[in-house]
């Protein structure tokens, strides 16, 4: 079983649209949406939820007003400025429990925190594991780890060939969590200076964690000079450019209809994504031989 993760650094470069199409093209796979605080993959795959599970993670401090003597030790020691006027701001509280450990009158208890839900769904393209982080919640990295673990479990139980995961933007905690156990990261970029800057940082993260990467340049014709620069950069880093996808309104039209673009038409974008999947599966097959 091979684990493929789609990342981008910069948001909005087309990760989810590409994952939706790979879902339609790849056989024997499980899909996972690791962008747990703004999940969108379900909008292309029309899932029917088979299992919904609460995600309990972390704690929040609660002050018992009747016991509190307002000595203010907790306020003075909290590094997250989460206690003001002897009340805890649950959004700022990081759940470290320092306050409850030092309160001289034991007025502070730590309450378990329900920080989201995760789901196992059926789609026309196979099983999908997805999640929803609660509003303004922390621990997205742990929820991502849970999504990935469930997807891996399904792949093993059903003897599937691939897990294909839609990753979060950025390079921080949820991205690092998504990368564990990944065989190939597909980095989707766009020929903008921002996209190029962000690509270099996400390449750095893949390298830091030893995950092989491949690049896809989306909307390559927006700025062909920048596209050439990305190709030069990839060559210098020994990273394969697996595909150059043109800008086409078909991607948005498919999205509005809630279907992967390769199911919507067989235009230029669909043909390029077809090649992209051949390149990905080819590279993984070569890796197995090598």
């Amino acid at each position: 079983m091979e684990e493929i993760l789609i990342l981008s650094g910069k948001g909005g470069t087309g990760k989810t649209s590409i994952v939706g199409s790979l879902a339609a093209l790849a056989k024997n796979k499980v899909l996972a949406d690791c962008d747990v605080d703004a999940a969108d993959l379900h909008l292309l795959l029309s899932p029917s939820v088979k299992q919904e599970t609460e995600f309990w993670s972390g704690q929040v401090a609660v002050i018992d007003k009747d016991r509190c003597t307002e000595c203010s030790l907790c306020q003075d020691l909290c590094r997250f400025d989460a206690i003001k006027n002897f009340e805890v701001d649950p959004v700022s509280c990081e759940g470290c429990g320092f306050c409850s450990n030092i309160c001289p009158v034991e007025a502070i208890t730590m309450k378990e925190n329900m920080s989201g839900h995760w789901f196992i769904s059926d789609t026309a393209y196979g099983p999908l594991v997805h999640a929803r982080l609660g509003i303004a919640q922390e621990n997205s990295g742990k929820l991502v780890a849970q999504v990935r673990q469930q997807a891996r479990k399904i792949a093993e139980e059903q003897n599937l060939d691939y897990t294909i995961s839609d990753g979060p933007p950025g390079i921080g905690c949820p991205v690092i969590s998504s990368l564990s156990g990944v065989n190939l990261a597909l980095l989707v970029t766009e020929p903008t200076l921002s996209g190029m800057h962000d690509l270099e940082r996400v390449v750095g993260v893949c390298r830091h964690f030893g995950v092989p990467a491949m690049v896809c340049i989306n909307k390559y014709d927006l700025n062909e000079e920048n596209t050439r620069q990305i190709e030069d950069y990839c060559r210098s880093q020994d990273i394969k450019v697996a595909s150059r996808i043109p800008f086409d309104n078909a991607v948005t039209e498919a999205l509005v209809r809630g279907v992967p673009v390769v199911e919507y038409d067989d235009g230029r974008v669909s043909r390029e994504i077809g090649k992209l999947w051949q390149n990905i599966s080819g590279m993984l097959a070569n890796g197995r031989k090598g």
Partner: peptide
């Protein structure tokens, strides 16, 4: 940053 979790808050 994009998203809705701790860095956004």
């Amino acid at each position: 940053p994009p998203g809705t979790s701790c860095p956004v808050v």
